[in-house]
């Protein structure tokens, strides 16, 4: 696939505090890419570098192969949906959406048809003359999205656009954004700290921490094959324990040897093992590969979350069947459910 945006060794610092440390990244055309990470990881800064609002200290930004590092925002073929919507309070819905087209000195009839088409797409037909300040959060968000998309940008940047909405609306908008991205057939670059949001919408997820990329991959890859403990703990809940790779396809952890599907590690290499809570099977104690005592059970709706103590380690298990606190249970882990990572610091 064609690279639409490329970042090469981007360095950004505010007040001598490094924010991005030589970040390099290629973004492919027509993908839904999400920058995911905790606050302060540099995800918004990366987005602002692409938008032209942050000038990197060094490094280059390429757009369709052209170096646009020194281009001001208004010369870039990208549009942004801002975190707090940033609608123009002195203009009504129609004029907000038409803003970019008017600057391009477009013909009035063309503007009208494109604005009404876009308002229809985001479900705000009939809102043209409304003041933006009387709209609900979700409606304002739609105006902001329409205002960006109406310019037919090749890339739309979205900076935590759903952060201020309530859960139900957020879920609706997630699906709608994904639908929009596919309908418009352009690249979306989306910033969020919500891992579920990232998993729901993205083709590619870029996980960041402290100004560095931790892992790039599709949602399934990142969930099932986290590259390090940070990614594993940030995407969903995980049991992460130290282990030793005995040989190919065999790993020892929690005082027991397990069969796994990983190979290519050194003999007796120290590794970390990731096991998702829903991948641990609860069995009667005598049949378990490991046995532990249930400490507590929490009802979570679809499943129960149990904390099980085994040889000083507390396992998290998700199961549709509840065990009793204090009960001795057995745990089984299949070879496919064991994910081996090289030992990372911290």
């Amino acid at each position: 696939m064609n690279k639409i945006v490329s970042l090469k060794n981007i360095v950004v610092g505010f007040d001598d505090e490094p924010v991005l440390n030589g970040l390099s990244l290629d973004i492919h055309d027509k993908e839904f890419v999400t920058f995911l990470g905790p606050s302060g990881c540099g995800k918004t800064t990366t987005l602002r570098v692409i938008g032209g609002f942050v000038q990197p200290k060094s490094g280059n930004v390429f757009f369709n192969g052209q170096d646009i590092t020194n281009f001001p925002p208004y010369k870039r073929e990208v549009n942004t949906v801002f975190q707090k919507y940033a609608l123009f309070p002195h203009l009504n819905v129609y004029e907000n959406v038409a803003f970019g087209l008017r600057l391009k000195k477009m013909d009035e009839r063309e503007i009208r048809s494109r604005v009404s088409e876009m308002l229809e797409v985001v479900g705000l037909k009939g809102f043209e003359r409304r003041s933006t300040t009387n709209l609900s959060g979700g409606q304002q968000q739609r105006v902001a999205i329409a205002r960006g998309l109406v310019n037919h940008p090749k890339v739309l940047l979205l900076d935590e656009p759903l952060g201020a909405l309530d859960l139900k609306l957020r879920k609706e908008m997630q699906l709608e954004l994904k639908r929009l991205q596919q309908a418009m057939d352009i690249t979306f670059i989306y910033v969020t700290h919500d891992q579920e949001e990232a998993l729901t919408m993205s083709d590619t997820i870029v996980i960041m921490k402290d100004g560095n990329i931790q892992q790039i991959g599709g949602p399934i890859d990142i969930y099932n094959e986290p590259e390090n403990a940070f990614v594993a703990s940030f995407i969903g809940e995980s049991n992460i324990i130290d282990g030793i790779m005995l040989r190919d396809f065999s790993v020892e952890f929690a005082g027991n040897a397990f069969t796994c599907v990983d190979k290519g590690f050194a003999h007796n290499e120290l590794v970390q093992v990731v096991i998702r809570p829903e991948d641990i099977q609860v069995v009667p104690a005598i049949r378990g590969q490991l046995t532990g005592v249930v400490k507590d059970v929490i009802f979570k709706g679809v499943h129960y979350e149990m904390h099980v103590e085994q040889a000083g380690y507390e396992w998290i298990i998700h199961s549709t069947q509840a065990s009793e606190p204090g009960e001795l249970i057995g745990m089984c882990i299949g070879p496919d459910e064991i994910h081996i990572m090289r030992r990372s610091e911290g």
Binding site: N79, P89, K104
Partner: peptide, 28 residues
């Protein structure tokens, strides 16, 4: 808000256009 100025630039407004179309009316 700064983001309103940035939104104008993002949509293609240079310094003069941002001044005339956003800053001036909002300072009215």
């Amino acid at each position: 808000d700064d983001s309103i100025i940035e939104a104008a630039q993002d949509l293609g407004a240079g310094t003069i256009k941002t001044l005339l179309r956003v800053l001036l009316p909002l300072s009215a």
